[in-house]
Amino acid sequence: MGKDKWKCRLCGQFFDNKEMSEEHYPARSVGNEDIVALNITKMFDSFQSKEMQERIGNKLSAGEGIEQISGDIFDNELAESLYPDGRTARTLCRKCNIFLGKYDEAYLKFFSLDGDAKAIKGFSQNTKIYIIKSIFGKFLSIPEAKNEEFDFVDFLKNDLETEYSGKWKIYFVRRDFSSDLMGMKDIGTGKITFEEGVVYELSDDKFIYNLMNFDKHPCFEMTNLFDILKKNYKLIQGVGSDGGYHAQIFMTRLFSELI
């Protein structure tokens, strides 16, 4: 940001504050409306108490599922309002935000169909490319990547471009109980560094995305975002027993909040 100026992360030009947009990351339509934070300290205290353990036991005995129980506890006791209007950033000028909006419209179709492989295979190639560009575009806005110079900007700026051969890759999974602590969905952002490179994270209500500048570790089962272009596209559910990158980023953020 220059003196009293903001730099658009897409076109690279500088603008007055009033010319910048409030960019939602992820899009408002995929769960980014009223962001709440998990009170970590209260959570640990609550689940260690005999009263909470008895309440959970009684609900389980009454036939309630653990996801329903944990969801109710999160919503009513552990959640604290963080971004009432959704998480936003002033990273794009108004023109660029509107331009990327058409990519987000395509992604909403993917989101609404839960990324189902059979349904997505019926999409046009252009729609699939727009879906891919939507996710790449959202990483321009996460705070952890504010100093990163991404080489996929030109890929995003040209809506007719169908190929990207840069160093960044996106892998993702469909959320399930293995990815969310006690079923409590967290759509925070994050960053973790390895010897091979860096991993950024962005998620919405249904999917967790990791942007990285190296090939993912083979021990983590995830879908390459560009695989949605292929006939053998397969959607990976959950993060598995090892938790994947998501667990490492979540724990890093958790410990930083406790310190």
Rank of each mutant, 00 (worst) to 15 (best):
F152I: 03
E54F: 12
N32K: 02
W6H: 13
F207R: 00
M52I: 13
E51D: 15
K216M: 03
Q48F: 15
R174L: 14
D180Y: 00
K206E: 07
R94D: 04
A62Q: 13
P26L: 10
L229P: 00
Y209M: 00
V36G: 10
Q248A: 03
E64N: 14
L113H: 08
S49I: 09
K59P: 05
G243F: 01
F14P: 08
L140I: 07
F207L: 00
D176N: 15
A27I: 12
Y25S: 06
M212W: 02
D16F: 11
E221Q: 10
V173H: 04
D75F: 10
G190Y: 06
M43T: 06
D72F: 15
G166V: 05
R90C: 09
H246M: 07
E105P: 03
V153G: 03
F74Q: 06
K167W: 03
I135P: 00
F123R: 13
Q13L: 13
I135K: 05
G12Y: 12
F15D: 06
E51W: 02
N213I: 02
P218W: 14
G86K: 08
G238F: 01
N224G: 00
I40D: 11
I73C: 07
H246D: 10
P143Y: 09
K191F: 04
F111V: 13
F152W: 01
G31R: 03
G190V: 07
E33G: 02
G183R: 01
F74H: 14
E51Q: 15
M43W: 15
R28T: 07
K95Y: 13
D114F: 02
K234R: 12
G101Y: 04
H246N: 12
K206T: 02
K42F: 01
D114K: 14
Y233A: 06
F47L: 13
